[in-house]
Amino acid sequence: MTMSNSGSQSAAITPAGVDRPAAGPSATRSLEQADSAHLAAHVRKGRSTESARRTAAWLVGIASIDGRVVGALVLLLVVMFPFLWLVQLSLRPTNDIFGESLLFVPSLDSFRSLLQSHFAGSFVNSLIVSTASAGLSLLFGVPAAYALTRCRFRARGRIALWILVTRMAPPIAFTIPFYMAYRWSGLLDTNLGLIIVYLTFNLAIVIWLMQTYFAAIPQALEEAAYIDGCGVWSAFWRVTLPLTAPGLAATAVLCFVFSWNDFFYALILTRTNATTAPVAIVNFLQYEGWEWPKIAASGTLVMLPVVIFTILVRSYLVRGMTAGGIKD
C-alpha cells in the first residue's frame, strides 16, 4: 500500500478499503501499515467534516436574527464610524470636502498631492527606522530571551522587572537625556538616532514575548539534539528557533508597529531630515494650515502598513507545530 504523504485527499484509500482486511500476505501485514491507513482515513474524514461544519456555522451566523449578532454589528458600525469617516474623507475630491452628500466619486487627488510633497520622504524614513529597529531588537533580544528561559539565573526576577519598567517608562524620561546626548554626538535628526532610541521599548518587547514562545518548546527536544551532536546554540538554531517561527514573526511585526506608531520620540529627536510619517502629518497642520483632504489622506497612508500587518499576524495562528514531536 502506498500512501500519498502530503496529506492531500488522495483517492488511494477509500473508507471501505480500510475496513476490509488487506489483500496479500495477511500474516506479514505489519502493524504500522494498519496505523497509516487508519490515520489517513481519519484525517480525510476529519477534514471534510471540519470544512462542512465551518461553512454551516458561517451561514447560521449570517442568517440568524440572533440579537447578539445584530447588537455586535450595530456596535461595529458605531465604533468604526469615525475611522471610516477619515478614510472616506481622504477619498473625496478636493473640491467637495464639505459636501453634504454621502455619495461621491472617489478620487486619489489628495494622495497624489501628498506623495509629491515632502511626505513621501518621511514615509521612507518611517520604513527604514521601523524595519531596522525591529531587526536590531530581534538580533539582540532573541538570544537573550532564550538564555533567560533555559537558564536559572539568579537575577531573573530583577531582570524581568527591569524589562517591564523599560516598557512602561514615560518617553519623556528618556527623551531629555537622549536629546542632550544626540545634540553633542550629532545623532539628532538622524535615522540611526531613532533606531537606537526605539531599542528602549523594542528590546524589552522582544525579550518579554519570545520568552513565552521559547518556554512552550519542550526541553526534551533540545536534549535529544544535544545527544545527537548539538551544542547549546546549534540546538537552538536548528531545533528551537524553527519551531517558534510564528511567534518570531508576530514579535517582529509588533516591533515594527510600535516603531512605526511612535510620535513623541520622533517629534523631539528629528527636525527635517529624519522626520517620520507621524511627525510629518503634524508638520502639515502647523505649516500648511488645516488642509483636511491632505490630513485625512496622510492619516490613511500612515495607518495602512499597520492595519495590514495586524491582519496578517492575526491569521497566523501557532498551530501546535510540536504536535507529533512530543507525545501530547
Partner: peptide, 26 residues
C-alpha cells in the same frame, strides 16, 4: 461561537493598533 463574531472581534482591534497620531486626527 458564531463565526461572524470572530470577524467582528478582529475588526475591533483596529482602534488599538492605529498610530496614535491617526487616532488624534480622527
Amino acid at each position: 461561537r458564531q463565526a461572524i463574531l470572530s470577524a467582528v472581534r478582529a475588526v475591533f482591534l483596529i482602534p488599538m493598533v492605529l498610530p496614535p497620531i491617526v487616532v488624534a486626527l480622527i
